[in-house]
Design a protein around this nucleic acid. Structure first.
Lengths: 142, 142
DNA sequence: ATCGATGCAAAATTTTTGCACCATG
DNA sequence: CATGGTGCAAAAATTTTGCATCGAT
């Protein structure tokens, strides 16, 4: 049994929401799969109704437990940093594979600095990088 | 007449695509509005069919002329850096306003470095920051 | 026992597609 | 004048909603 599940259950109780089947299942699916699209999520929870999955996802997003990721023309969901290591994504323009880009303290501090200069208090951020992966670089000649 | 429009026309010709009404109108709408959702874009081009707007947006995205931005549960389109200054976005969790965060050379170089270490050749990136703006910070006590 | 959450069915919205016709290069 | 692009209409896919019932606290 995942320790993250315990944490999730606590978070739900603290925010005064019931701990129900769809909620546990959606959370577990994301825990096991890193990122999932809405359609995949619906498929991953066949015992529950589509509408419940949508409502669950909306709730978890409001609570900051999951967040949305843009993957080209579509989007996916993943658990927030409270449940996963903080990381970003790098997707290859050529082969479409997505790689994790782990958090970088220097980078994040620079970012915090830059926003603070403008009077902002940064709480969260997303960073997506596109380019060519190791394997695909030689294939393109310019 | 915007100089960017000229550039856009050249880009279209070079990629062997016709320069048509829907394409010019979609481009101009984004030039004048910074970011627009799909629905807003359709509304901004009432003389053209919804399907054409969709097809135009898909084409411009493939050509790298525009790109998608995630704004909470919805998304918006904006022109790429070739037509706008390179910048990111910072949205306030409290009042919802969105601010431009201009590009930061130091930050970008760090990022390029970090990805290069992993064998990637970075071509593009998006950065979204959430937090509290100047005006909203005092309102929240923790 | 009480609300909050769910399932179901239906509506609303968003996106995609096929095809005949038109217009750009 | 040859394609590539468009409008129109329809289908497909995605997301939202109302309501009766169920179940977690």
């Amino acid at each position: 049994m995942y320790p993250q599940l315990k944490k999730f259950e606590t978070a739900m109780k603290q925010s005064k929401h019931h701990l129900t089947g769809p909620r546990k299942t959606v959370f577990s699916a994301l825990l096991e799969n890193d990122t999932l699209s809405m359609a995949e999520l619906v498929r991953a929870c066949p015992e529950f109704d589509r509408a419940s999955i949508y409502r669950t996802v909306q709730l978890l997003e409001e609570l900051g437990i999951i967040h949305r990721l843009q993957m080209g023309w579509k989007y996916q969901w993943e658990l927030s940093d409270d449940y996963h290591d903080h990381h970003h994504h790098m997707s290859c323009d050529r082969c479409g594979r997505v790689f994790r880009l782990s958090g970088n303290k220097v980078l994040e501090n620079k970012l915090r600095e830059a926003t603070a200069t403008l009077g902002f208090q940064m709480r969260n951020h997303q960073l997506e990088v596109q380019g060519l992966c190791d394997r695909c670089q030689p294939k393109i000649k310019t």
